[in-house]
């Protein structure tokens, strides 16, 4: 399946792009992260500590063990600092 992967804040800066289409058979967010980490050092650096990251699936906050079936948009970002 093809999913849209979005990156925000320092995750975007570290990976070097705001979004990309990713072809994956990963069953969960964690599996997708492991796939991305093997791509290049910049991905490995961005995902080195996933406890410092948050994930949203189709624009709703989720977690790294969540299944990806049916998901079209996955976003990775640091903890939010609104207000």
């Amino acid at each position: 399946m093809t999913v849209n992967v979005l990156y925000f804040a320092w995750v975007r800066e570290r990976i070097g792009l705001p979004r990309e289409a990713v072809e994956t058979e990963a069953a969960t967010v964690s599996e997708l992260v492991e796939e991305l980490k093997t791509r290049e050092d910049r991905y490995a650096a961005a995902f080195a500590d996933v406890t410092a990251l948050r994930v949203a699936l189709d624009q709703e906050l989720s977690d790294f063990e969540a299944p990806l079936a049916g998901v079209r948009e996955i976003a990775f970002f640091p903890p939010m600092t609104g207000g």
């Binding site: 925000f8 949203a56 976003a75 970002f77 640091p78 609104g82 207000g83």
Partner: peptide, 11 residues
């Protein structure tokens, strides 16, 4: 909730 649950990031 806006501080921690709305997707904004400050630089």
């Amino acid at each position: 909730y806006l501080k921690s649950r709305a997707p904004f990031w400050k630089k």
